[in-house]
Amino acid sequence: MSGWEMIDVSVNTKPTGTVESLLVSEPEGGLIGAIKATLVRDMTLLLRRRGEMLNPLVFFALVITLFPIGISPEAETLAAIAPGLLWVAALLAALLSLDSLFRGDHDDGALEQLLLSPHPLPLLALTKVAVHWLMTGLPLALMAPLLGVMLALPSGSYVVLAVSLALGSAILSLVGAIGAALTVGLARGGVLVSLLVLPLYIPVLIFGAGAVQAAVSGANVAAHLAILGALLAVALGLAPFAIAASLRISLNG
């Protein structure tokens, strides 16, 4: 590998341009650039390992398949429990994918570099969570109506199901990322994440499944969706800071 020797020679012959001039007093802008590059990078990574991306979706479909077998194939029985079932299964599927959110970056040292960026860590972490939602939460929400058909979910509630899951899974990703960040430094963090995160998921489940139930019974769903939206706003405001703090703890003690 001779590249370096060559550059050394060329540098030695013309030792102009000092590094002194490189010292910057204000970090350059480029926050948008950093966020965009992180988005592109994380999307590319997920698209290169499509299997990993499909796993939560397959899990979702499998769990939903278990219930008619375990309970009863009768449409009436299934329709009664469908809203809750769909929501619980989607929630578990989203949970399943959490552990990989930061683990890859932690294991190969990229997380360390992310923490050393002059840009605000909460925003960069939020970017990663956004990718997680785009690649898991959103597909789960889009797939849910399909599984709803299999559970004889009454018509008229399909749009609400997808919308409530899309909104709700964003909260799940944000809150779950705190748990993932807290356990990323632990060798066996997988089960622990569920223990930390599931209790915090309960309000989302209540209002998400409640919205679908309300749609089934013909009640007004706006209240449920509005509360989900409010929870999302709170999570968007607070979770990035908790995630950033947790990442620092996991990496540096």
Partner: peptide, 28 residues
């Protein structure tokens, strides 16, 4: 020390969530 900090963060996240959980369970 790391465990102490992690537990503190989780307790803080939990304490913010307790009223939300309580309210939503009552509602449910």
């Amino acid at each position: 020390d790391a465990g102490a900090r992690a537990a503190s963060v989780l307790a803080l996240v939990g304490v913010i969530n307790i009223p939300i959980i309580k309210y939503s369970v009552d509602w449910w």
